[in-house]
Nucleic acid binder design. Structure first.
Lengths: 204, 204
DNA sequence: TATGTTAGTGAGTAATCACTCACAAGAGGT
DNA sequence: ACCTCTTGTGAGTGATTACTCACTAACATA
C-alpha cells in the first residue's frame, strides 16, 4: 500500500509536512495525526523517526536554521558593495519568511515559548547571528560613507530587523494580501535614505 | 468554601486570569480547567459566565482593546507638542505590552489566527486604529518642522510600529531581560533623530 | 535461499480537552 | 419564613492528544 522509504527521506518529508501544516493550522494545533496524514503514514510511524514531538520540532528548527544561513551566505557572496550587501541580507530574510510563512507563528508558539527551551535557543541563536551579520554590513556601509556615522551600528541593525519583523507581522495579520519581499525592500530603501542623510557626517 | 460573587466581578476575574495564564503557559495551551483553578472556581463555572471558550477570548480581546485605547487617549491628551505626542503614543504602546506581556503571543495564537475570526478582526482593527493615530501625529510633526516632509507619514508610521514590535519580539525571546519601555523609547529617539534631519526640508 | 535489520501497521493507552446536566446553596424581596 | 433568581458544584460526555506495543513486510547481504 504505502511506499517504503529510507529514514532520511522520510524525516525530510515529515519536517516539510510540519512546516506546511504549521502554516495552515497553526504550530500548536498541529498533531502527530495531522502530520502522519499529510505525509501518508500511520500516526505511530512518526515516532519511528522522532522519539518525541519535541524532537520533531527541533529537527524542524534545524532545517529552518540551515536554510536561513544558506540564504545569508548567498546574499553576502553575491552582493557587491556595502549597500547591496545590506539590501541582500534584508531581502534574503524577507524571502525566507515568504517561503516559510509559518516562521513568525513558530516564533510565538507555545512549543517554542513554553514547552521546548531547546527550540527557543535555536531561534535565539539565529536572530543573534543575523543581527551580527547586519552589524558587520552596517559598519562597512559606514566606512564607505553610505550610512552616517553618528548612529551606532547595533541600533541600526535593530531598526532594520524590526523593519523586517514589522512587515512580516503586517503581512501575516493582513492575510498576506501584499508582496512581502517587495514591500519590505521598499521600506528598507526608505529607512536607508534616512540613514544616508549627510547631516552629522563630520561628527566629532 | 468559595466566595459567591456577582457575574460582572467574576467575568472580570476570569478575563484577568486568562491574560495572566496566557503569558505563563501560552494562549493555546490554556484550558478552561487552568482558568478555573486560577480564579478559584470549578471548571464548569467558567461556562456559566461565557457560553464558549471562543466567547471568553472575545471578552479578553475587548478588555485589551479598551485598555489600549484608554492608554492612547491619555497619551494624546497629556502630551504637549507634536514630538511629545508621538513619543507618548509609542510609550503607551510599549507600556501596554509591558503590562500585558501575553499580547504578542495572542497575536500569533491559533485561537486568533485560525479558530476565531472575530478575535482576529478585533486585533486587526486595533492595529489599524493605532496606525491612524500615528499617521495623524506624524503629520503634525511634519507641519511643525519636527519631521522631514519628504517621507510619507504612512511609511513613518509603519517604521515606528515596526520598531515597537521589533523591540517587543526581542524582549519576549530574550526572556525579558531588559526594560522594554526604556529600550523602546531610546530606539524611538534614535529613529526620530534620523527623521529630523534637515536635508530635504524644502522639497517640492 | 536464509537471515538480520529497518520501515511500517493496527490496536490500544492514560490524560486532557471543551462542554453538559442535574442539582445545591447563597442573596434579595415580600 | 417563603419564594425565586443566580452563582456555583460533582459527575460525566465524546473527542482528541502524545505515545506504546506486538507484530509484519520490505530490503540488504551472505
Amino acid at each position: 500500500m504505502s511506499n517504503r522509504q529510507s529514514a532520511e527521506e522520510r524525516k525530510a518529508q515529515i519536517v516539510a509536512g510540519v512546516l506546511r501544516l504549521a502554516d495552515e493550522i497553526g504550530p500548536d494545533r498541529l498533531s502527530t495525526t495531522d502530520v502522519a496524514r499529510a505525509v501518508g503514514l500511520s500516526q505511530p510511524a512518526i515516532f519511528r523517526h522522532f522519539p518525541t514531538k519535541g524532537a520533531l520540532w527541533l529537527a524542524v528548527a534545524e532545517d529552518i536554521a540551515l536554510r536561513l544561513r544558506a540564504g545569508w551566505d548567498e546574499a553576502e557572496t553575491e552582493a557587491t558593495g556595502p549597500h547591496a550587501r545590506l539590501k541582500a541580507l534584508i531581502g534574503a530574510q524577507l524571502a525566507a519568511i515568504s517561503e516559510t510563512p509559518a516562521l513568525p507563528s513558530i516564533l510565538f508558539s507555545r512549543e517554542l515559548q513554553v514547552d521546548n527551551p531547546a527550540l527557543r535557543d535555536v531561534f535565539r541563536g539565529l536572530l543573534g547571528a543575523f543581527q551580527d551579520r547586519l552589524v558587520a554590513a552596517i559598519r562597512g556601509s559606514q566606512a564607505a560613507g553610505d550610512v552616517r556615522r553618528d548612529v551606532s551600528p547595533e541600533d541600526v541593525a535593530v531598526l532594520l530587523t524590526s523593519l523586517v519583523q514589522g512587515v512580516a507581522i503586517r503581512w501575516t495579520l493582513g492575510a498576506r494580501s501584499f508582496p512581502l519581499v517587495q514591500e519590505g525592500l521598499r521600506l528598507f530603501e526608505v529607512q536607508m535614505a534616512l540613514l544616508r542623510s549627510t547631516e552629522g557626517m563630520s561628527h566629532e
